[in-house]
Design a protein around this nucleic acid. Structure first.
Lengths: 161, 161
DNA sequence: ATAACTGCAAATCCTTTGCTGTCCG
DNA sequence: CGGACAGCAAAGGATTTGCAGTTAT
């Protein structure tokens, strides 16, 4: 009967591959990131990690997240609102984000043709495409029984998503 | 012979239309903004305004720029690098930005088809298109006599443009 | 007159860092 | 062992704000 508590998270494995030292807190943060299917900011990551292991400091989360970004394991996003959001890098296709201006919720969507399109635009301007940033902001069409009291048109200041 | 120092700048006129009080510093900032053909950040605006009138404080620039953004006269941009950049709102067609990752320079370009394209994407997802953000990052192709020593692949920290 | 504005400095917010002690490989 | 890493609190950089004094209308 196996009894190892091991079973590294997907991101923890990437860390190991890149030769990063796997400390207890690092492992916890890696797990939180692996489990996340949204775009948490540092504070949220800190909250989630704290649940699994209370002796983690925000500074460590900041350092880890920055390190993983440099290693290409994470990608930083900016959906407005002042704080950086993170999500695991995806190997294959890219996806974009549509932010609901009424509640800050983020919807992901793909568009294979788009990047190729932009790649061409860059070329036409005499540049080699390096990367791009694309965010769409929209309002949900005809809301049947609008349940949200959080309609903000002012400066965003919401949570993750 | 007319001797009025008047001759309000384009943006100053917009301010007046919106019923804003035209103080000396406001007028100066409006002029700086009207004359700018780039994407200055607050510090740069402050610098330029100070030349025309030294008794302007950064706080005022911040307040003005925020107010004008709320009034729809200015648009805030984020090209990375931590500080917000501003440019006058354009009535007609929109344009996008290509940032040269080697020197932070910003090239503007248009693509009429693009917005319509995105508008359709939003609709398909059940949203009304409100706005979008699109930035392209690239490297200049085959640089003949590269004069820049500022090749940074790390965290950006440059000036305006 | 009076609400809108300004300056200045203190306050916020997010993020980074110096220092010192700890732990993985 | 030795460098990589963690905690804590102080430092930073951008932007906002409280307060008291001006000023455009």
């Amino acid at each position: 009967m196996k009894a190892q508590p091991a079973e590294e998270s997907r991101i923890a494995q990437l860390c190991i591959e890149r030769g990063l030292k796997m400390t207890g807190q690092r492992r916890v943060i890696a797990r939180v990131l692996s489990d996340a299917d949204d775009h948490p900011d540092v504070e949220e990551l800190y909250r989630r990690a704290s649940v699994l292991d209370s002796r983690i400091s925000v500074a460590t989360v900041y350092r880890t997240v920055r390190l993983l970004e440099e290693k290409g394991i994470l990608e930083r996003r900016d959906f407005g609102g002042g704080r950086a959001r993170y999500e695991a890098t995806e190997s294959g296709r890219h996806h974009y984000h549509l932010i609901d201006v009424d509640n800050g919720k983020v919807i992901e969507f793909e568009d294979p043709a788009h990047e190729e399109f932009m790649r061409r635009v860059a070329e036409r301007l005499g540049f080699e495409f390096v990367s791009m940033r694309l965010e769409l902001f929209g309002k949900k069409l005809r809301s049947p029984a609008s349940t949200d009291k959080t309609t903000r048109h002012d400066r965003e200041k919401e949570k993750h998503s």
